[in-house]
């Protein structure tokens, strides 16, 4: 990074601005907020610390709210430890001075999955020179390359209670069981060659085609692409069986593996 401050502009090299894409969880609040917050609390109570330290973007598209409403909502979220890094789908007038910035050009994170590599979410390029434009274009290619290099991991030990395996880059394979109170979060699919007794969250970065496979289903929570299912909602005939779990529209489906 080069920084040159000079009134005469003796050094004409432009300031380099880099584009970089990050994955964020997107929360889409619904009216009335009090009801939505209650449901959020319920979710947070089931998965303690779920939002802790994760970047969150608030999608307010289509909501008829005022700046005061938004401010109140941000306050409520702040109290719950949910830190909002940006707001999507809002009119410019909705964003007050001390609020997170308006974000545009977000894409479902599924597009960031290994194969075809689109550019970063926002590549800002000063018009003074064409050089930084090339730099900005070159940048994401390197990143995508590194993503491609590690698109799956294999865990050879059982995942114990209290441990969490978080791998947003791709698939997670576990040679062993996932204990009650343990958590596996994968950007892609989750394969458990043992009993799945803890939580499994597949396609966590917006990949609806992700699946969960396990030898023995006794999970405390199953989620794909943000849609989740608790044990009570699961078909009892799959309990203790080897199953595959996938998403069909907005429904989580399961089927016994032969």
């Amino acid at each position: 990074m080069t920084k040159t401050i000079s009134k005469q502009l003796t050094d004409t090299r432009p300031i380099r601005l880099k584009g970089r894409s990050f994955l964020a969880l997107v929360l889409s609040p619904e009216l009335p907020f009090s009801n939505w917050l209650e449901r959020l609390d319920d979710l947070a109570a089931r998965s303690t610390g779920f939002f802790l330290g994760r970047p969150i973007v608030l999608d307010v598209e289509g909501l008829e709210i005022t700046q005061a409403d938004l401010k109140e909502l941000l306050g409520e979220l702040g109290e719950r430890g949910v830190r909002v890094m940006g707001i999507e789908g809002a009119r410019g007038s909705l964003i007050g001075p001390n609020m997170p910035p308006l974000m545009k050009g977000g894409r479902p994170a599924g597009d960031i999955e290994p194969e075809p590599a689109p550019g970063p979410a926002a590549a800002a390029t000063p018009a003074t020179s064409s050089a930084p434009e090339q730099a900005a274009k070159a940048e994401p290619r390197v990143e995508v390359h590194s993503q491609r290099a590690v698109s799956s991991i294999v865990i050879t030990e059982p995942v114990r209670s209290g441990q969490s395996i978080i791998f947003p880059e791709g698939d997670v394979t576990i040679l062993g069981s996932v204990a009650s109170g343990a958590e596996v979060v994968a950007g892609g699919s989750i394969h458990v060659y043992g009993a799945l007794r803890g939580r499994a969250l597949a396609g966590s970065v917006g990949n609806a085609s992700a699946r969960i496979f396990c030898r023995k289903l006794e999970a405390e929570l199953l989620a794909i692409d943000g849609l989740y299912k608790m044990p009570d909602d699961m078909d009892p005939k799959h309990r203790g069986q080897a199953v595959t779990v996938w998403l069909e529209g907005d429904a989580i489906k399961a089927e016994r593996l032969a």
Partner: peptide, 16 residues
């Protein structure tokens, strides 16, 4: 019993 087993599982994780 289940609570003891889960706590032991946690401890095994810490031992590792």
């Amino acid at each position: 019993e289940v609570s003891s087993v889960r706590d032991s599982d946690r401890i095994i994780g810490l031992l590792d």
